[in-house]
Amino acid sequence: MTGTMNITLKVWRQAGPTAPGKFETYTARDVSPESSFLEMLDVVNEKLVLEGKEPIAFDHDCREGICGMCGMMINGVAHGPSKLTTTCQLHMRSFKDGDSITLEPWRANAFPVIRDLVVDRSPLDRIIQAGGFISVPTGAPQDANALPIGKPEADEAMDAAACIGCGACVAACPNASASLFTAAKISHLGLLPQGQPERYRRALSMVTQMDLEGFGGCSLFGECMAACPKGISIDFIKRMNGDYVWGSVSARPEKTVLTSG
């Protein structure tokens, strides 16, 4: 193990959604390069707690890069300098002694700050509610192998399904757009035969909901893809756009059918 290091942290502190926020400076001393980024923050927080001060609030849970709970801007980069890595999987060996690190929450109108580095990402759930599912009630299905799906299609669907919903795409996008998130779910389900009946309806309603939540539009900067810890490709945004256009062209009006019993 190499020597420990001292790091200066400039952290956004904000007491609540409506409270004004500002940067505070802290020093993390004797940080092990083997520790994870959040473990470094744990140590800073432990010290703050013992001083009777309120520790830095940040979201985290699984700490193995899959739950999507953690995420912050680290020196202006969503999830920090390592590619394909969530904040919790970032390790301090990516930094060096004497470094100064600026920490900010995801910033988007749709993601109001709850406290410090914690933001409200419920708009992402509501985008899923708008159609990010296959309407199949429990108990209805046929045998799993009754519907063969080619390996390439299944693999591509899995590429899209790997999204962890962390919101880094929104955070990194200069437009604060949620297109990559939305497109990933539209593509995951739209690539599979099971998802075909609702494919275009899904694209139309999810895009509409994405707009309603106040996210920006897509300029294809590509920043989302670079920030995505799961490497989700902007090719899926292309797919979403295609489904949206075709859905708009081909949409049939939904009828209310009256039945008598």
Binding site: M73, G76, F221, G222
Partner: peptide, 8 residues
Amino acid sequence: YALREAQV
């Protein structure tokens, strides 16, 4: 952001 670095 106070700081945002373009990546790609």
